[in-house]
Design a protein around this nucleic acid. Structure first.
Length: 422
RNA sequence: GGAGACGUCGCAUAGUCCGGUCGAGUGCACCACCCUGCUAAGGUGGAGAGGGGUUUGACCCCUCCGUGGGUUCAAAUCCCACCGUCUCCGCCA
């Protein structure tokens, strides 16, 4: 939820943000109107309520013979209070609904436009080249019996898979590498719940435009999370945090579930786009004025991971129209996938400023009382990374060199050979 | 799944039977100051959250006793539902 004070005092900033997202400017006018109506309704209700409170005291203090007459009067007042309260509650609900439909205000410098209007900030590392026919990640993995798509489909349907043998070990190694690096950077490791209540899912901003993407368990009124960002944001809901000593940083490992509705026919081969995968996610609570610096740090840790794995990548500044509801700015790190001749997203880091925190009631004590904190998130590793690792480090005989950083997590294994791996 | 107990402003508690004096008392912790020859003890005062108004004054008002309803002129207190915690029983990968 955006700052109501900003809406009232600087609506132009909100309008410009909507324009750069290519989103509706009309909702800004709706929100302003709802805010004004809300305040008027509250003022009227509170005036009547104050009157009723004062009257109640008279009734309590009155001698017995006068009480009946006073109570008769008070009954009328009570009716007026009740209806004014109803008006006030309705106005408040309408305001909340309206303002929540406004996505976060984008930061200065974010490129305007849609999906293809990103700005490339840098390209890092040399793209691998091969003097043989490169195999794609699935062909390589099948040589090691590391990924089993057919049986995944048999058991669970399309876009499900088994990671087996070295495939399973490789993923665990990757996650452990990420966790150790996060630990060194001061993150607290967390394994969160992956089923969450509606208000938590709502609070993180995922029930808006991405509602179709989310698995929902009707019998229990719970949602399966598509990222541990959701439970990590909910972790401190309705709390006042002490961020005076610096940002509070969590590294959450979880399985992620995505319906991938509307992506029929896209990335159907292998594990690029699947319904279930694992992810190590960074999640940070800090003050609003430190958010942008922290965002750069998150990006730095992500790049450090890709570099340690010997991957070639680029960093893009995602355009306003392609930001999620909660994000004010987002950087993606995309790795080069040789057989696709393209960069594919491996990480994403968003600065949600105070948007999520305002919805979830997460505050800290500032100079003038409590203020919402800023929240940020960013990927540190996912199952998809296996695609880039396998393809980048493949050799002519179908074997794959294991990046040095991963070897300690695989008992020193240096190369995966077809047929021999387990 | 069944039975019972409980859920109060950081923590611990009083208050709930018999509705108005609870716009919530006390202890601990916390902050400021005082006293004290010093990381103790004592004293005084302060201090919660959300929202509205405003002559923008360190001022006024409204709301918050798990959540949501209800009864009432008036609810922490009465009624209903739900959520959570604990104990016991049952069942179970």
């Amino acid at each position: 939820m955006i700052d109501p004070q900003l809406l009232r005092e600087n609506p132009d900033i909100v309008r410009r943000s909507q324009e750069s997202r290519g989103a509706s400017v009309a909702v800004v006018e709706d929100a302003i109107e709802a805010e004004t109506a809300r305040r008027a309704a509250i003022a009227e209700y509170e005036r009547l309520r104050a009157e009723q409170n004062a009257f109640g005291k008279q009734v309590a203090a009155a001698p017995k013979d006068q009480k009946a007459a006073l109570v008769a009067q008070a009954q009328q007042l009570a009716a007026a209070v009740k209806s004014a309260q109803q008006v006030s509650t309705d106005a408040d609900r309408r305001f909340t609904t309206t303002i929540r439909s406004v996505p976060n205000v984008v930061l200065d410098g974010v490129p305007p436009g849609g999906e293809n209007d990103y700005v490339v900030l840098r390209e890092v590392g040399e793209r691998p080249t091969f003097d043989f026919e490169a195999r794609d990640h699935l062909a390589l993995a099948e040589g090691f019996d590391a990924i089993d798509m057919a049986r995944g489909a048999k058991v669970s349907g399309a876009r499900f898979y088994f990671l087996k043998g070295i495939g399973a070990r490789l993923e665990l190694a990757l996650m452990n590498l990420g966790l150790d690096r996060a630990l060194a950077a001061g993150f607290t490791p967390v394994i969160p719940p992956t089923l969450v209540k509606p208000e938590i899912m709502e609070g993180t901003g995922f029930l808006g435009e991405h509602a179709d993407e989310i698995y929902y368990l009707q019998a229990d009124d719970l949602y399966l999370v598509g990222t541990s960002e959701v439970p990590l944001a909910g972790l401190h809901a309705d709390e006042i945090l002490d961020v005076s000593a610096g940002p509070i940083r969590y590294a959450g490992w979880s399985t992620c579930y995505r319906r991938e509705a509307g992506s029929y026919g896209k990335d159907t081969r292998g594990i690029i786009r699947v319904h279930q995968f694992n992810k190590l996610e960074m999640y940070v609570y800090t003050t609003a004025d430190q958010a942008e610096a922290e965002h750069q740090r998150l990006l730095g840790w992500q790049e450090g991971m890709l570099q340690s794995l010997g991957l070639s990548y680029r960093v893009i500044d995602v355009a306003a129209g392609d930001l999620g509801t909660s994000a004010a700015r987002k950087f993606d790190v995309e790795a080069w996938v040789p057989t696709q001749g393209a960069y594919r997203e491996l990480t994403s880091t968003s600065n949600c400023t105070t948007f999520q925190a305002r919805r979830l009631g997460i505050r800290h004590r500032g100079e003038d009382g409590t203020e919402p904190v800023a929240t940020l998130n960013g990927t540190l590793a996912t199952t998809r990374w296996l695609v880039a690792i396998l393809e980048t480090h493949q050799q002519e005989d179908g074997s794959v060199l294991i990046p040095e950083a991963l070897r300690p997590y695989l008992g020193g294994l240096e190369v995966i050979r077809p047929g021999a791996a387990r």
